[in-house]
Amino acid sequence: MELDEGDGRLLEALQQGLPLTSRPYEALGRRAGMSETEVLRRLERFHAGGWINRMGLIVRHHELGYRANAMMVWALPPERVSEVGRTMARYPFVTLCYRRRPSPPEWPYNLFCMIHGRDREAVLGHRDRLVEELGLHGIPQEVLFSTRRFKQRGAWYLQGGGRRPERPAAAGEA
């Protein structure tokens, strides 16, 4: 599936989220210069084409009481990454799980997962369970707790190139 120019305008309009009004798709269409019907048709296509994982409430874990947020990284032998990654992703406390290109020697880790917990002990307990149940004894790993959030908002993939850098005052969270 190819992105056409209308898709691009709609994705850009969507980055700000839907307004909390009775006809949000109509309002989105006004931003993107198309009708409500066309917005809905394109969104169906985005879902079908797998461009959109989900549409709905995008929540902040921290404000829901999940105060401990850790990035857990593992240095797996290349041939094991996919299998372990797929299994890890099925645990409910794993909110993201990605293979990333390592950058040795500074950064040997190739599997990343995000774990949210109510406190640090909960997160470390989840780590121990993964090591045990996936047989990851001896695999180099680290847990990087986040201690401060400087910025969190939706991605802006499609903004024009000429606006950078933003004035710092405009860089708040969505």
């Binding site: 992105l3 994705l11 969507l14 980055q15 700000q16 989220g17 839907l18 909390l20 949000p24 969104l43 985005f46 797998g50 461009w51 959109i52 994982n53 989900r54 549409m55 709905g56 409430l57 995008i58 929540v59 902040r60 404000e63 829901l64 990605y98 969190q152 908002r153 939706g154 991605a155 993939y157 499609l158 969270e173 969505a174």
Partner: peptide, 18 residues
Amino acid sequence: RVLSRVGAAIRPGTVGAG
């Protein structure tokens, strides 16, 4: 501040570069 927005989670790697 619990709700960031009502919107879409765009699948990484499908649109643009990241």
